[in-house]
């Protein structure tokens, strides 16, 4: 009902320019997020943008309820959330791997060597566990080098944040809000460029791109994904999202 005539081309061009208006800076994001946390009086998880973290903020109240709540949410999300789009077995394996790492004894010698820690990124959980046991400055350096964008956030908090962000993206894809999903995935990439769920992020991005109609980028990223993650458990989900596009484009027979 009530069909609208399309907007004139020249007005459309004007609005296209506004659509790509400058985004706020990281500094803006940090400042506003910090102000919101302060006003609310709650230890929000992390700071706005890619910096600042209430989790490591000495002004944050002791015994933070955030960790309890985040743990509860993480448990609820757990395997089920990860498997919602990527397949149950994928979530189960990621969760199993996470659990295995959490219970693996830490070789503290491996994180007390500055040269090694700077050259080889260490699994975040191992570093975080080590930092609880060893107070040498090198460990702190190693911890920061794992995820420089979240310097004061523990590995577990980081994983919870990752899960939560991907959760939002996944729901947005399910609801057809692909631009919102892509924005969330970009935010995840900025914050966790080498996060433990980056493989899943890349897979979700391909799905979002395919659903948004951005076929060329979806196909290109799918190709890169296969090379970067041969035998990935996410591959079937990606092929489901892009298979027809690639066949139409002649990329695969």
């Amino acid at each position: 009902m009530n069909p609208l005539e399309p907007l004139e081309d020249d007005l459309r061009e004007l609005l296209d320019a506004e659509r790509i208006a400058d985004a706020p800076t990281e500094t803006d994001a940090r400042r506003v997020f910090a102000a919101v946390g302060e006003t609310i009086g709650l230890p929000l998880l992390g700071g706005g943008g890619s910096q600042g973290s209430a989790a490591g903020d000495p002004r944050a109240p002791a015994g933070p309820p955030v960790e309890v709540l985040a743990a509860r949410l993480a448990k609820m999300i757990g395997i089920a959330v990860i498997s919602a789009l990527g397949g149950g077995i994928i979530g189960a394996r990621i969760q199993a791997e996470h659990d295995r790492r959490e219970h693996t004894p830490v070789n503290t010698a491996s994180v007390t060597s500055p040269s090694q820690s700077s050259a080889t990124p260490l699994p975040m959980v191992e570093v975080a566990t080590a930092s609880k046991q060893v107070t040498a400055p090198q460990v702190t350096t190693a911890s920061a080098s794992v995820n420089p964008s979240v310097p004061n956030t523990s590995a577990d908090d980081a994983l919870k944040m990752e899960r939560s962000m991907l959760q939002m993206a996944r729901v947005a894809i399910l609801k057809g809000e692909t631009q919102s999903a892509l924005a969330t995935l970009r935010a995840h990439e900025t914050k966790f460029p080498h996060g433990r769920l980056s493989e899943e992020r890349d897979a979700l991005r391909i799905q979002a791109l395919a659903r948004s109609g951005n076929q060329a980028e979806a196909i290109a990223r799918a190709e890169r994904f296969r090379k970067a993650h041969p035998g990935s458990l996410m591959t079937p989900a990606i092929e489901a999202a892009t298979g027809k596009l690639e066949r139409d484009a002649g990329a695969i027979p």
Partner: peptide, 27 residues
Amino acid sequence: VTELVLHPQSSVVDPQVQFRPLFDAHF
């Protein structure tokens, strides 16, 4: 499950946990 977990009325949801990604995505 994804929708259930994100539903505001659900007891497992807490804005402290969800606010960060919400802020990052929509700021």
